[in-house]
Amino acid sequence: MKFRLISAKELDATLVARWAELRSQSIIYDCPYYSPAFTTIIANARDDVRILVVEDAGVVVGIWPFHALSSFRAVSVGDFLADYQGPVCDASLKLHIADALSAMQCRYFSFNHMPSGLGKFSQYAWTNSQSHILDLTGGFEAYAQRLTEMRDASLLKKVATNERKLSKKFGELRFELQSSSDTDFAALIAGKRDQFQRTVGAEHDIFRLDWVRQVMDEIRAANAPDFAGMLSTLYAGDTLIAAHFGMRSGKVMHYWFPWYHTDFAEHSPGLILLTQCARHAAQTGITMIDLGRGDQPYKLRFATGANQLCEGAVSSPAILSSLQAGLYHAKQKLKASSLGQHLRKLRQTAR
């Protein structure tokens, strides 16, 4: 097995074609984050993107894009923007982690959105999570039937009731799955920034970062069958009441940054937005909407399945990630303790 480290600028047509072949070997790779276009866009905004190419007998069997944060640490390409992480590999590849880290010129690689079935990474996980999905196979009505059988039979009826109430009170509802409006995109970003600042603090507003805004702009401009940005909007009369920005790759849509106008919260515009996205996306041939990691109530209500994820780290020597795992579990115990709850209240009061 041979390793070759390249920059994103060295990614040529032959390697991109092989990347596509490797993606076709597993449905988990249908996710937009595993597209070479996503890596290229991230590399346009950040100069620390590297790609580890794994070869066996002269054939490329693995491609692993990442950020070289330092000579010690690396993370998956996209950093905290990446809802799916890890290498794109041939199904038969038995990747030796220590050798890979050496070739990446780092000692420590952390992950928090790694598919549990991808390689050996689950062996190094500290905790597990899920990325909930809407299975649109067979169209929206087939999804609705599955949802009724698995979850809340009245959910979509409630959404339809709120649609009628909104329309009657504020004007006709208009939904667009793929909007090209600069004004609507700016409103969505402004709304998300306000949400971040209100709920988690200004320091967690990711859109304050230049490279994040550049990535959003370039993804929005992308419009190819294997990778495209998607801006979806919901209007009541002349007022934008909800919007979403995400990505599509083939038949998979990733639900990324939803927002709704809080003045209309009484009528659940966010739930209407997701329902309309599902209905219209199914009409375009999309068979899955991935809601991303987390157990927020709206995800649990709409999901008909889930992809299993894990969080942890790999290192060389292995004791480095073992020590970090110990710190992680100690921190989780503190959070769950009465002291942790008290400290959390103090922090919220001080904010």
Rank of each mutant, 00 (worst) to 15 (best):
K9C: 01
E10G: 15
E10F: 00
L11T: 02
L11S: 02
L11D: 05
L11Q: 02
L11H: 07
L11E: 04
L11Y: 04
D12R: 02
D12C: 06
D12K: 06
D12Y: 05
D12T: 04
D12L: 02
A13D: 11
T14A: 15
T14P: 03
T14W: 08
L15M: 10
L15P: 06
L15W: 01
L15Q: 04
L15K: 04
V16S: 12
V16A: 14
A17C: 05
A17M: 01
A17H: 11
R18L: 01
R18E: 11
W19G: 04
W19Q: 07
W19H: 09
A20H: 11
A20S: 13
A20E: 15
L22F: 06
R23P: 05
R23N: 01
S24V: 06
S24N: 10
Q25H: 00
Q25M: 07
S26L: 09
S26D: 14
I27C: 07
I27A: 14
I27Y: 03
I27V: 14
I28Y: 11
I28R: 14
I28M: 12
I28T: 13
I28P: 06
Y29W: 02
Y29C: 06
Y29I: 04
Y29M: 06
Y29R: 05
Y29N: 07
C31F: 10
C31D: 15
C31M: 13
P32K: 10
P32M: 12
P32T: 12
P32F: 11
P32Y: 11
P32H: 11
Y33I: 12
Y33S: 11
Y34I: 07
Y34R: 01
Y34D: 07
S35D: 09
P36H: 12
P36M: 08
P36T: 09
A37W: 08
A37Q: 13
A37E: 14
A37C: 08
F38L: 05
F38H: 13
F38I: 08
T39W: 05
T39K: 03
T40P: 07
T40F: 00
T40K: 12
T40Q: 14
I41Q: 07
I41W: 00
I42D: 04
I42A: 04
I42H: 00
A43T: 00
N44T: 02
N44K: 13
N44Y: 00
N44A: 06
N44H: 10
N44I: 00
A45Q: 08
A45R: 08
R46I: 03
R46G: 02
D47A: 14
D48L: 01
D48H: 06
D48N: 15
V49C: 04
V49G: 00
V49N: 01
V49K: 02
R50E: 01
R50K: 15
I51R: 05
L52F: 06
L52M: 09
L52A: 10
L52S: 09
V53M: 08
V53D: 01
V54K: 03
V54P: 03
V54A: 11
V54N: 07
V54C: 13
V54Y: 05
V54Q: 06
E55N: 08
E55G: 01
E55M: 10
D56S: 15
D56E: 15
D56T: 12
D56M: 10
D56I: 05
A57W: 06
A57Y: 09
A57V: 08
A57N: 13
A57Q: 13
G58P: 09
G58C: 10
G58V: 10
V60R: 05
V60F: 02
V60E: 07
V60K: 05
V61S: 10
V61F: 00
V61T: 15
V61Y: 04
V61P: 00
G62Q: 04
